[in-house]
Amino acid sequence: MFSESTLRRLDRLALVAQRVRAGVFKGERRSTKRGTSIEFADYRDYVRGDDLRRIDWNAYARLERPFIKLLEEEEDLAVHVLVDASLSMGFGDGETRKLDYACKLAAAFGYLALAAGDRLSVSVLHGEEVAARFGPARNRGFALRLIRFLEDVEPAGDTRLNAALRDYALTGGRPGLTFVISDLFAPDGHVDGLAQLQGRGHEVVVVHTLAPIEVEPDFAGDVRLVDAETQDFQEVTLDGGLRDLYHTRLTDWRNEIDAYCTKRGMHYVPVVTDEPWDQLVLHQLRQRGLVK
């Protein structure tokens, strides 16, 4: 899923939450709280993938076992990645299939979280609830398992995004930085679910994923459009006028979501799947301050 060079570049990155949530575990992340000093708190066992620089070599010399030193003032960050795996996410040709793209993004976000020692949960949304879950996991050693988990994700059924997000808000555990990767084509909408997540204290990043053929339809003339999820249909005669209107309406829709997110303090990242995913992570998210 990741090339060696991409991994090296990801290693140098870390997710950034505007408001870090206090963790129950001692972490590698410096707290924003003031007045506390850098003090030793505890040891934990080294697991493969941990940063070697954080091994207490004195303890290793004495005990011949590697331990990681935990510091009092550091916190861990809960990172949630929610991947919409409805049938509509199965759209796109080859490299631009939305679900593949979403999984790559989820893997990248997950890898960043694991590499930083954050508490990572990855959930696949089907229907009204979480269909599959990975984590919580806390170190780089879980990276391979995360990738295998995401490789097995296949699109199925429809997603009641509002219901699924609401469910996750209740059952998803400690609030944190939450990525919602979806095309937002949900019959029941997405606004309530996002609001519920935020209400539970999550810092929400909406990654709005669209395939190129959804931005520029590749059909024309008299067609009967069938909804992949609901099997609803709509007959249209796609001419130049209607095509222009579609572009306008799509832009309006994205602007509406953007405006809603901005108003609620959420992050909105619109993305078309012909854009290289690593560029998105390494460049766009960094520009938006979500990655440092």
Partner: peptide
């Protein structure tokens, strides 16, 4: 009409 499957007809409707 030619049948075309799309991810969602919400926008079209």
């Amino acid at each position: 009409r030619r049948q075309v499957e799309v991810s969602s007809v919400v926008l079209w409707q």
